[in-house]
Design a binder for these strands. Structure first.
Lengths: 342, 342
DNA sequence: ACAATTATTGCAATCGGTTGCGTAAAAATA
DNA sequence: TATTTTTACGCAACCGATTGCAATAATTGT
């Protein structure tokens, strides 16, 4: 087995009796290099199996064409689609994507932020960990002019780019849909997270829709969770079904919760949608698998990923230090399926 | 806004009147540096907000503590769990993970392999693209002593590490389970991919199980697909249900296919599992959502990711050039749920 | 034919940690 | 006290691509 050393521009330079500066420029079609030389260099580089060393270029230029992604986990459908979107856009502009999972832990998020900084990423896309209450660990990016985009779970008071959906409107739409389908006792499950205020926004939309349509707001129908797992959903659902009378509708701010409600209802002999209508959130794959198919709110994950990546790349190209860090709102829609049919 | 330049060891050295070499060594507890100096340096580094530049270290040492992951997509549950496993293990040893999606395209896979090499990753974990028939683009890693681990969809004839399940045995088990549940006309869906021979292996297991249990092998019951999408599954299922008599069992080598079969059956009024039993593969989340719950074969994605990452890290520590590139087989099990009940 | 451009290429510093080797100072030994 | 051994730290080259500036060669203009 050969101990192939990496081929460098020095090797090419030596072979062709040229300076490394010429090689470097030729490889990127610099206008001061003659066409013949460019062709010759490229051909030789190809023959010798030259692959540029990103590290060297990054060190010298202090930029890496790398986007760091810091998210709670890659296994949630929404987040893996988000990554997919980021990756697709990044690839088009020849950017590399580094992914780190915070597992919803504040401590890990802090560490990984440092690690991304250490890797001198060109930009950062982040969806906050559940635990996170403080965003000081992102100052290192802001302070060094590294574009930072928060997605979905975003801090409220941080002057940087944000790509989100309008959770209030989405919650409003979902609830309104249930009302239109005839529900009058509409339950809601929410979760307490202060920084990423998306659940509270959805709840606000829920409340507002009830008010606007003169539907009674009953605090007993609102269940507050600390996490949004399937098991939590089952508990919440059982609590709702223990009420008398049971609610006739549920707006669950996530498809997993909605599915757990549907399945719990089935187990208890409650018919969905006849006796109990459910609308979820996210349009996860499971929403089309469950019987009855789940009505839900679309959550344009891939689009959000693309938008976030585009913001970073655009911001990197024109390095004008706009202080206008806009917030991008993407649209959501009600997907009316079987679980809310009259 | 301050134009904060990155703090370097030079800055620390200047502040403390020490050499950069001393700083560098102190920061990593080198034994030739006195405890007092180490403490002083670390304290100052902390105060000044020093974050090491990974690029510089990587360039000098020609190693980056980075694992490159090259997979078809991140959105399949199996693959996102695989990533999760890789990431968890990598993080423990302070490795960074770079993820690239080939989207099952050979051309993209070639490009991204080059990109990973360009980033001087320390090791590579790959699950091959469907399209890939040729693995020459991985030689750059093998030739340069960069550990390469193929996972799940692995080439047959490449002397490197592999982490897989025993697809033959898994197929055998799945089929045997159907036989035990009373099926006698067992259908199978397979897909033609030559390099990643996992579907053909599963099929081999299917055939062998039928033989061993004296169940007739009927070529009409075996459907060959080019891809394994939900839509393909519907087509295949319809083809099976157009037969007379229809099969009484199906071993689908993926939960998506299995689910499509269950749903197609329902639409056509065929009762699962009474008239038609189905077993899938992977234990995707949807398998527990669909009604009836899907029997399936476990596919230990996270474990495989961890195993792959461990192989790389271990191999990097002890840089002995073992020519023994072992194949790691992980275990799979039948999960008997409702869709195959007698 | 000579000056003025323009087209090409080379030189050398630079990015920021890392590390082999050398040396001065302190401690141990004779 | 003289000498050997440790201990602690500095010097400077190095990794490989990039880039401002200088320099040489080719081309154009008068």
């Amino acid at each position: 087995m050969e101990e192939n050393k990496h081929v460098t521009i020095y090797d090419i330079a030596e072979r062709l009796n040229l300076a490394t500066s010429t090689i470097s420029r030729a490889l990127k079609d610099h206008h001061t290099i003659s066409d013949k030389t460019i062709k010759k260099v490229k051909k030789t580089a190809e023959e010798m199996g030259f692959v540029p060393n990103t590290l060297a270029a990054g060190l010298r230029g202090n930029k890496t064409k790398t986007i760091g992604v810091l998210i709670p986990t890659v296994t949630q459908p929404f987040l893996s689609s988000l990554i997919s979107g980021i990756e697709i856009t990044a690839q088009k502009s020849d950017y590399t994507v580094i992914i780190m999972q915070s597992h919803d832990s504040y401590e890990e998020e802090v560490n990984m932020a440092k690690s991304l900084y250490s890797n001198r990423v060109s930009g950062v896309i982040c969806s906050l960990a559940m635990e996170t209450r403080d965003t000081a660990h992102f100052h290192q990016f802001s302070n060094n002019n590294i574009p930072l985009v928060f997605v979905d779970r975003v801090p409220k008071d941080y002057n940087t780019f944000r790509v989100v959906i309008d959770n209030f409107t989405a919650g409003y739409k979902a609830t309104k849909h249930l009302i239109e389908q005839g529900c009058v006792r509409i339950a809601h499950i929410t979760a307490g997270s202060e920084l990423g205020n998306l659940y509270s926004e959805r709840k606000r939309g829920y409340i507002e829709a009830l008010k606007d349509h003169n539907v009674e707001i009953d605090e007993k129908l609102i269940i507050n969770l600390n996490s949004v797992t399937y098991e939590d959903g089952v508990k919440a659902s059982n609590a709702l079904f223990d009420l008398d009378p049971i609610p006739d509708g549920l707006f669950a701010p996530g498809d997993i919760l909605a599915v757990s409600a549907v399945q719990t209802a089935k187990k208890r002999g409650i018919k969905v949608p006849e006796e109990f209508k459910v609308i979820g959130f996210n349009n996860d794959p499971i929403s089309q698998i469950i019987d009855p198919n789940l009505s839900t709110i679309t959550h344009p994950a891939e689009k959000m990923g693309k938008a976030a990546a585009e913001i970073i790349i655009k911001n990197l190209k024109s390095s004008k230090n706009d202080d206008a860090k806009e917030i991008t709102f993407l649209n959501t829609e009600v997907l009316a399926r079987e679980s809310t049919q009259k």
